[in-house]
Design a protein around this nucleic acid. Sequence first.
DNA 1: TCCGCTCTTGACCAGACGATCAAGAATTAA
DNA 2: TTAATTCTTGATCGTCTGGTCAAGAGCGGA
Lengths: 207, 207
Amino acid sequence: MVEATTIPRKTRIQAQNEELILKAALEVFSAYGFRGATVDQIATRCGLSKPNLLYYFRRKEDIYVAVLEHTLHDWLEPLRNLDPGGEPIEEITRYIRTKIRLSRDNPKASRLFANEILHGATAIGAYLKGPLKALVDEKAAIIRGWTAEGRLNALDPHHLIFAIWATTQHYADFEPQVQAVAGHAPDVMRRAEETLTKLFVEGLRPR
Amino acid sequence: MVEATTIPRKTRIQAQNEELILKAALEVFSAYGFRGATVDQIATRCGLSKPNLLYYFRRKEDIYVAVLEHTLHDWLEPLRNLDPGGEPIEEITRYIRTKIRLSRDNPKASRLFANEILHGATAIGAYLKGPLKALVDEKAAIIRGWTAEGRLNALDPHHLIFAIWATTQHYADFEPQVQAVAGHAPDVMRRAEETLTKLFVEGLRPR
DNA sequence: TCCGCTCTTGACCAGACGATCAAGAATTAA
DNA sequence: TTAATTCTTGATCGTCTGGTCAAGAGCGGA
């Protein structure tokens, strides 16, 4: 008789601690980068001992990859929601607004990715070339269609998407610089949203 | 008679080695970040022994600060050149073109700064709040003036500058992502320049 | 209650890394 | 040539850090 392969059913404690770890890991990795973060820091932050943490994730890199994967999906949700059936300017405006609010509300995730890509994207390179490229190509085709219908000013859709990513995530990734130059007035993010939507709307509206 | 304070006159060897070190340090720090880089790596890359390198810069942090300061000035040159007497759209177009070419030709400097700011800008925080803020405020005032004269669409000048920084440096800082999504076709940077200038020109042209 | 499994931890290890030092080699100025 | 100064390096130190291990504590099902 053949042994049934053991199903790795998750304990309550297991699920709970893994969640704690991923949360702490996001904080630490986003602040110090992969190399700059230490396992001890993460363990301390979630109230576990270092060996205990390494009981759940065997290697530091495993934690890193897990937290990356854990946040990647959410991060692309707004782009996924770009609706081919919607009004072009309105769709893109909504995308920009959603992205900049995501940057404001979850800057740590933004910084985690920024750091990962800045240092070569070794851990998520395959994801970028696979699912991400597929998604972007799909949405770029939609934008290209809108342009062909004369509903948008003709801009290369890939570079348009890059521009939206760059401008919105800038406020999370370069926060110290933004703050140093613009002050930490409470309306900085409101002004940013306003300026960016205006820039892109005017830049995209067909003449 | 009063001793003349010893003037730290620089030897030929000294100047030569310091240049070697700064060049190697830019490579290594931009690729791995401050924490990720090792003194040994830098020493090896410029053909010096580790103790010899530490003869010129006592601490790792001294090298880091030196290479940051060494490149900071050049990096802001394009903004400094924004001419209040010029034609607004033309001036800003030229600024964008210069910046994107700088990103293309010196991506390592871009990544060095990105990494520094991403991790809190502890080494150049004072510079950001001082000279950088002063320069940006000065140029923002110029742009505001152009807007008041009706020569530009009304956009918050600080956020406009942020948008230009973000979009242009994106191509250096997020190169692996750009390459994964857009391919490494030789015309990527040409298309980027074209798309960005068009976006900003249309976004800024008064209606 | 008992037993097997999961969970937790103090102690420890090996390697990496920043930094020091003493001593010798090279260079420079006279 | 000589002497002072600058430059170079092998050896070494102390610390930090990722990861291991063995042993014990806690938990849940029968």
